[in-house]
Nucleic acid binder design. Sequence first.
DNA 1: GGTAAAATGACGTAAAAGTGTCATTGTATA
DNA 2: TATACAATGACACTTTTACGTCATTTTACC
Lengths: 209, 209
Amino acid sequence: MIYVTIIEDHQDFREGLTFLLNASEGYTCVDNFGSAEEAISSLSGREDVILLDINLPELSGIEAIPLIREKHPQVKIIMLTVCDDDDTIIQAILAGADGYLLKKTAPEKLLSSLQDTLEGGSAMTPSIANKVFSLFKKHVPVKNNAISLSSRESEVLQLLVEGLDTAKVAKKLFISIQTVRNHIRHIYKKLQVHSKSQAVAKAIKEGLV
Amino acid sequence: MIYVTIIEDHQDFREGLTFLLNASEGYTCVDNFGSAEEAISSLSGREDVILLDINLPELSGIEAIPLIREKHPQVKIIMLTVCDDDDTIIQAILAGADGYLLKKTAPEKLLSSLQDTLEGGSAMTPSIANKVFSLFKKHVPVKNNAISLSSRESEVLQLLVEGLDTAKVAKKLFISIQTVRNHIRHIYKKLQVHSKSQAVAKAIKEGLV
DNA sequence: GGTAAAATGACGTAAAAGTGTCATTGTATA
DNA sequence: TATACAATGACACTTTTACGTCATTTTACC
């Protein structure tokens, strides 16, 4: 038996969902709340998984995640929302959601997602998965293997990315400023840049560090 | 009717999959190949979606993706593999896969994933989705909302990240070098840094651009 | 044993950057 | 209406950068 709590401000939807869960074998809705504040103060702790709306009055679903986790670290949280814009999805994932479903998701899919989540997976509708794939491609650096820095050069570049200037790098590596200048010069040549900031930008974007 | 091509070197699995597809209403296996090379030279173009193994002899499934896309830009490609290590998943997503399923995926789930993919979604098993979530958290910058740059400051910072120096920024924004210096000065104060490279690093890492 | 690359270091110089101080104008917002 | 902030621009000054040229030592490889 999977115990579910719903946090959702639209009464009709909340009640519909409660009915669906209780009518489905193996699922029980143990609680439902109309706001995040109410839920946070009254959560029974009996639920295995929480279906959490994002667009709640006052405290949003995303802001609620860390507060819920504070008291119930092991409960699974699935976002259930109409929002599918990039930033909302990113924020939810970063906040620690275990799943992200759209409200138009078919009932059977919703129920199986609860199951999947409890087995350690993350629930997503295919359209959300598609967005996550795109966002992933946008944010993960494309390793550039064409650029081969020497170990010392990599070391220097790493320190530059961490914000050290030439003098600090020299001090840290126990070598002279002149030598660091030389390494930087070689790094510039290999990365085809002409300043520290360009080198740092390229290093981060191309996954050289 | 959904037309599917299978590229998979294990004969038993390939034949089992072919049988499953042809036995299921609405699905037809139009071709199957034991290697990527064979597939690339002989693809009929009749398929809507390709189920592609990663661990193929010679050319790997990941290397095959761009070659397949070259000739068939609109075909959907779902990776079907036993590998679930982080790097393989990342590489597949970056190479442009439309889905990523494990071979142990239940037949019904596999069939519905084909459907989902054709509707523009991305197919993933919940366990893979979970990995993608983790990887996402690892790679996506944590937006720092405590830092509030003015619109002009953001604009300048953006250009610095793109590698422009002070003079180029001034030219691009049709303002004087002195003004750009001033904006940069304010940016430094807000980001609490003292050089372009530090600002650029912080901008990228904290998602300010 | 010679060649190449890496790591170290130096001198010089023009350009750029970083920072302090100041001023004007426009746009909100309390 | 006063106050704050954003955007614009300037002058001065010191430090740092970027780059050219050069040299020594070590390590790796054919």
